[in-house]
Simulated assay, not measured.
Amino acid sequence: MEYTFYDDPDTAAIICCHITENKSPILYVSHDEDDGMWQFLCGKEHEIDEARLVSLQWVFDLDNSISTLKDMPCGCYAERITQNDDWVIRKR
């Protein structure tokens, strides 16, 4: 699938180690209002040391289903129960 985000593919994104190391699915995505940073998490509680910095392209290649979130404005987040569910977007 072709990269669909408006942000540059090399844009830094935060992802949790549960996804990168344990192959947990992405179940929570935040597009932060203060700095526009994208965060991709497994839906569990996290400590700071569990964060990893990767490119937005890397996350997109890992899970193309995030492409539906390309228009999600800053200050919003998206959740889903399982990897097969649709994303539900909410404003903070």
Rank of each mutant, 00 (worst) to 15 (best):
residue 4 T to R: 15
residue 4 T to I: 13
residue 5 F to K: 11
residue 6 Y to D: 14
residue 6 Y to M: 14
residue 7 D to C: 09
residue 8 D to F: 04
residue 9 P to W: 05
residue 10 D to I: 11
residue 13 A to N: 02
residue 13 A to D: 02
residue 14 I to A: 13
residue 16 C to G: 02
residue 17 C to H: 07
residue 18 H to M: 11
residue 19 I to S: 03
residue 20 T to F: 08
residue 21 E to G: 10
residue 21 E to M: 14
residue 22 N to K: 14
residue 24 S to N: 13
residue 25 P to G: 00
residue 28 Y to W: 14
residue 28 Y to M: 15
residue 29 V to D: 08
residue 34 D to R: 15
residue 35 D to E: 11
residue 36 G to Q: 12
residue 40 F to W: 02
residue 41 L to N: 06
residue 42 C to Q: 03
residue 42 C to A: 05
residue 43 G to A: 03
residue 46 H to D: 06
residue 50 E to T: 05
residue 50 E to N: 05
residue 50 E to C: 10
residue 53 L to D: 06
residue 53 L to Y: 04
residue 53 L to H: 07
residue 54 V to T: 06
residue 56 L to M: 03
residue 57 Q to N: 09
residue 57 Q to L: 15
residue 57 Q to T: 01
residue 58 W to I: 00
residue 59 V to S: 01
residue 59 V to R: 05
residue 61 D to I: 03
residue 62 L to S: 00
residue 63 D to S: 00
residue 64 N to K: 14
residue 65 S to M: 07
residue 65 S to L: 04
residue 69 L to R: 05
residue 69 L to Q: 02
residue 70 K to F: 02
residue 72 M to Q: 00
residue 73 P to H: 05
residue 73 P to E: 07
residue 75 G to M: 02
residue 77 Y to E: 06
residue 79 E to A: 08
residue 80 R to G: 02
residue 81 I to D: 12
residue 85 D to Y: 03
residue 86 D to H: 08
residue 86 D to K: 13
residue 87 W to F: 01
residue 88 V to L: 14
residue 88 V to D: 11
residue 89 I to D: 03
residue 89 I to V: 15
residue 90 R to I: 08
residue 91 K to Y: 07
residue 92 R to S: 13
residue 92 R to H: 10
residue 92 R to Q: 12
